[in-house]
Simulated assay, not measured.
Amino acid sequence: MYPDWDGVADEQVAALKQGPGQTDVHVSALMDELTVSSGEPFAARLRTLPGLPRANAMVRTVHPQVGEVLLAYETLGLPADDDQQLVVHLSADGASAAALDRLTGRRPGVLRAV
């Protein structure tokens, strides 16, 4: 699903490490469990990843029915003090928009509910 898996995994581990992993005991316990169950790939990322994850970027996915889909995402912090975030994904190009339209049965040019 993620041809650029290493980059996606880096971002997800950085998000855990720099966000709820510091303050939420349940997320911290999950990180401990992943260190054991996933082994060195997760543990190495946890040890070596500096800084915060990107708040916006693009991610490439491959869907079994429509092929490659490029999504742009934006991470929005919520005003509460509990590290919750809203992550919005939108098609990043025309080909990806068309692929998503084929999956949902949406006609091109019709307004899209977000």
Rank of each mutant, 00 (worst) to 15 (best):
M1D: 10
Y2T: 10
Y2R: 04
Y2Q: 03
Y2V: 13
Y2G: 01
Y2A: 09
D4C: 02
W5I: 08
D6P: 01
G7T: 01
D10Y: 01
D10R: 12
D10A: 10
D10N: 09
E11Q: 08
E11P: 00
V13W: 05
V13D: 02
A14N: 03
A14I: 00
A14R: 04
G19C: 10
P20L: 13
G21Q: 03
G21N: 07
Q22E: 14
D24M: 00
D24H: 02
D24V: 03
V25I: 06
V25A: 15
V25R: 13
H26I: 09
H26T: 08
H26V: 14
V27Q: 06
V27E: 01
S28I: 00
S28M: 05
S28F: 01
L30C: 07
L30D: 03
M31F: 01
D32R: 06
E33W: 09
L34H: 04
L34T: 00
T35I: 14
V36K: 04
V36M: 09
S37T: 15
S37I: 11
S38N: 11
E40K: 09
P41C: 12
P41E: 12
P41W: 12
F42H: 06
A43W: 03
A44M: 09
R45V: 07
L46C: 04
L46H: 12
R47H: 10
R47I: 00
T48P: 01
T48N: 14
L49K: 07
L49C: 02
G51K: 10
L52A: 14
L52R: 14
L52N: 08
P53Y: 11
P53C: 12
R54G: 05
R54P: 00
N56C: 04
N56S: 15
N56T: 12
T61R: 01
T61A: 10
V62F: 05
H63V: 06
H63D: 15
H63N: 15
P64W: 06
Q65A: 15
V66K: 11
G67M: 14
G67W: 13
E68G: 09
E68P: 07
V69T: 03
L71F: 03
L71C: 01
L71H: 02
Y73F: 15
E74T: 08
E74D: 12
T75Q: 12
T75P: 00
L76N: 02
L76M: 15
L76A: 12
P79D: 11
D81E: 15
D82S: 04
D83C: 07
Q85M: 08
Q85C: 07
L86I: 05
V87Q: 04
V87P: 05
V87E: 11
V87D: 02
V88K: 06
V88W: 02
V88D: 10
H89D: 04
L90R: 13
L90F: 11
L90W: 10
L90P: 00
S91Y: 00
A92T: 05
A92E: 05
A92M: 08
D93T: 05
D93G: 11
D93S: 12
G94E: 13
G94P: 01
A95E: 14
A97I: 04
A97F: 02
A97C: 05
A98M: 03
A98F: 04
A99V: 03
D101S: 13
R102D: 05
R102V: 09
R102Y: 08
L103Y: 10
L103W: 02
T104C: 10
T104H: 08
T104V: 13
R106Q: 12
V110Y: 06
V110C: 07
R112S: 06
V114N: 07
